[in-house]
Design a protein around this nucleic acid. Sequence first.
DNA 1: AGCACGCCGACT
DNA 2: GTCGGCGTGCTC
Length: 813
Amino acid sequence: MYIAVLLPLSVPQAYTYSVPTYLQKDIQLGVQVEVQLGKRKLYTGLVVGIVAQAPTEFEVKDILAVIDPSPIVNEKQLKFWQWIADYYCCTQGEVMNAALPSGLKLTSETKIVLRPEFDDDFTDLTEQEYLIAEALTIQNKLTVEEVRKIVDKKKVDRLIDSLISKRVIFVEEELEQKYKVKTVSCVRLAAAYQDDNAQLKTAFEQIGRAIKQTEALLGYVQLSKQRQHITKKELLETSKTEAAVITALVKKGIFEIYPLEISRLNTYEEAVLSSLPLSPQQTEALQQLAKSFETYNTVLLHGITGSGKTRVYIELIEEAVKRGEQVLYLLPEIALTAQIVERLRKVFGDDIAVYHSKFNNNERVEIWQTIIGGKPIVVGARSSIFLPFQRLGLIIVDEEHDNSFKQIDPAPRYSARDMAVLLGIMHGAKVLLGTATPSVETYQNVKAGRYGLVEMTERFGGVQLPQIVTVDLKDELRKKKLKGNFSETLLQLLREALARGEQAILFQNRRGYAPTLHCQTCGWVSQCINCDVSMTYHKFSNAMRCHYCGHEKKVPSSCPACGQHKLLHKGMGTEKIEDELQILMPDAKIARMDWDTVRTKNGHAELIHRFENKEIDILVGTQMVTKGLDFDNVSLVGVLSADTLLHFPDFRATERAFQLLTQVSGRAGRKQKQGLVILQTYETEHPVLKEVINNDFQGFLERELKERYDFQYPPFFRLIEITVSSEEIEKVKYGSEFLAKRLKEQLGERVLGPTEPYVARVRNQYLRQILIKLERQKNVIDEAKALLLQAELLLHQERGMSTVRVNINVDPY
DNA sequence: AGCACGCCGACT
DNA sequence: GTCGGCGTGCTC
């Protein structure tokens, strides 16, 4: 029997292994097996096919073991992975890597061990060999990494080989069990006392006058009436004794301690609430959705901010669960949307599993298993599309427009929103894309008749949309009314809002204090040593930090170039806004929400709680404040500079600006009262600002679509972006030109570049980009992809080019 | 992705 | 001559 085994590597295909007879009964698609690859390395891979006959071109190895005879991946998933690999030009192994929680992808680690018969005779060892042998007498196993550290060398294979041949050490290869079952210590009566009360009585007699022990036993008897398993902790609490007492009882042979396997997943203990009644608009939307789903597999729910889309989702989820279907609810960056998860938990309690990158390996493995077990609802970030669903009936993609659904690095560079649509088709599940600001490509799919459309145009409870006003910074500057980055208008309104006991949100799309530090005398600018960008000044940590590679250095006190002390901060980030505002409004309670303040596990949730409890008056933040926040008491939203959003060097800049500004505006005035939004700008006449102010989505869309059409951009054309990178600039130049030339031979004008990207060097790698614009025809696209992969192959065969990296990004949204 | 092999320059 | 670094190609 021969099987195709998929390994979590970026090799182009699955490998063929043979199955010894005694393991054959356990083999089926999706089963995890242990195999050897190369000389010694062990991996766990997945059975993805049964091979009809023995291959002849290469030797075949036996699989070593079947990890678990029940599959951890189903056939639909394997098809899904294959499709993603083809579409995004990556290997199935790379998809597998993204799909499986790392606790399910095991690789072995080589360990070196001292031979037991080695008799401490160090005489014919070299100095380095001696160091290793000595280390092994102290620690009995060493990893290769540890060996490297001890001798401080990059390559230690020859050293290890030599030690093996001198019969000092041998190597050991073992699969590391990454996933560990969590257990708690439980207490029960030893076998001799378990059966009846008479036995229990002898137990008490045996204890005699030891009061503490009697109490412990009594506590046990009491607890055992309530539950099957009694943890040591519970027993200590109820009987108010110490661990030593229990240990004594174990020694007497009355108690025994045993481990009980438990789940790491939190159970929801609060009462499950029934949901609020539906508004007429929500009822109407549900009816329309049901109707639309009769015709379309995918439907866009375009509901303005505050229209109550979540309540509609809840209704749909309930219906699907009642039908016995599984539901996937996708959210962008789930860690930032704790509010929604909390709300869903209140309705569905433990029927929900939450899945995202903040969970550790063990937790993710357990969630994976609960989905196989049929858990009805999953709320998760983009990687949850890979969970082992059996009978998916509904997929909701909330905040459909959000670009964090697209994974950029590493491969697979997939869009979870687009793949959710595909997943829906594969399962025969309905897909709902919900948002207040639909992406241009999704709306075009509606217009082209591929998706259905349902709209919600009123806010829940009759609340009005906020009034949006621009403040002309040019004008304020001329009249000298500008205080730092604050216009007098905005300051005045902030004061008034706070005086009324209301809260405000300020949006500035840049973190840190100032994006550059430069010398007034010689023009020197703080540059990152690894990247072609200026380093951002962070006042809070008093350091310069590169936002591309994370490199940090101290803030120079004088100019490193000319020695003068006239260093100036240029530009503004959230820290500076917070700082300036605190000076302008000393009594206000101000907090900041950006990556630097929500880094810790619960940082975000804590900040939200403080804001909810009105411990904060003004929240200053980056894009984060535009996402899923829902506060009743916010009456004012301020955008410090709308201009930076509008002038991004990207064809999606205006779309993103429209979405961000509309979303952040939506945070204002959600109950009783109309909110107010202030947009500070130097360009009051910019069409996008007008469209945001007038809530004119259709106007924005028409203008944007025309531009996209004229300049051959999505959704009318498909893009493939190729990034060539290397530490050596000559190789990058040669490589990118080689690829572009080959592509142009076949695709002509559709190939643009190579060009230097906006940041031309990141993490010491020089970058060049090639862009391919393709008509939306399957054969054209497939041909281009095949050509591209061919060209990449040819490039890597060229002398010196094998180390040049080529990243392919299909649909680089 | 890891690992071995072999080429090549540097140093004994 | 030998050691160590690095590019190249293979892994069922």
